[in-house]
Amino acid sequence: MFADYTMAELTSIFAMQGFAGLILFSVFVLMALGLAIIFGQMGVINMAHGEFMILGAYVTYLTSNVFSSYLPESLYGSYFFIAMILAFFVTGALGALVEWSVIRHLYKRPLDTLLATWGLSLIMQQLYRSIFGAREVGVTLPDWLMGSYAITDLIEVPINGIFVMILTIIITVAVALMMQKSRLGKQTRAVVQNRPMAAAVGINTEKVDRLTFALGCGIAGIAGSAFTMVGSTGPTAGQLYIVDTFLVVVFGGASSLIGTVASAFTISQAQSTMEFFLSGSMAKVLTLLTVVIILMLRPEGLFSLKMRR
């Protein structure tokens, strides 16, 4: 399959597909971060995570509309930052509400949370369809995010892609620091390890649960913001990503942040490179097969801590 291309063409194909993979990687990482935090913290598999991401995308879309119709054009360039912050807080608030009204009654019943969040995802999809219509919507990128940066004659990288990646790095580092250093992070890790014991040393586990769930959803909202730059937003767009994101979380080892990043990288790169040469579904089959085989050899995922229990 490589025979039809010259060496120079192959290099640039790999470079550009690799870069496209990096954008996919960014969305995966942001989605998986939230999912892994929620799953690791309370064992809840949030099937509605993709819809939380799309909520962030719609918030971004609305913000961009408000900016273009009510505010002077000179401000349009900065809409994305406002949208991101709004997306974080709106999805986070919805997450807290969902945790308070539904999830907290279903702890210790993993199957029921699975069903409840899946139902929630259907409700949210229908809401999007009723409010925003079934058509996909897109945002107009501000000028400074348009265009691409030519590295060589054949290799060009889009500026919005670079931006999304930098954003992902900043958020990942911030989340990592928060989990390692902040008080909430330490409390979260204590609750993850041993919930009744964490309560018995004075941690309000219910509050920690609510905050973590909100944080996980909030990060999904930011993922949604980033998503508007690389794809168009529709009611069911979130579903396309949720399976891959689960794959990333399980493959990386649910308790490890580095694992999540590494597995997101592997999976997104493998997919995007193979997609160019094979068909999209064939690429997916190969990725899934590889992941299944690796998980059979290392059931706890790529990265896990070894110590006395």
Binding site: K186, R189, A190, A198, S255, M307, R309
Partner: peptide, 13 residues
């Protein structure tokens, strides 16, 4: 909390 350091363990208290 076995994956947390000694000082982090005390800090949870």
């Amino acid at each position: 909390f076995s994956t947390m350091t000694v000082s982090e363990n005390i800090e949870t208290g």
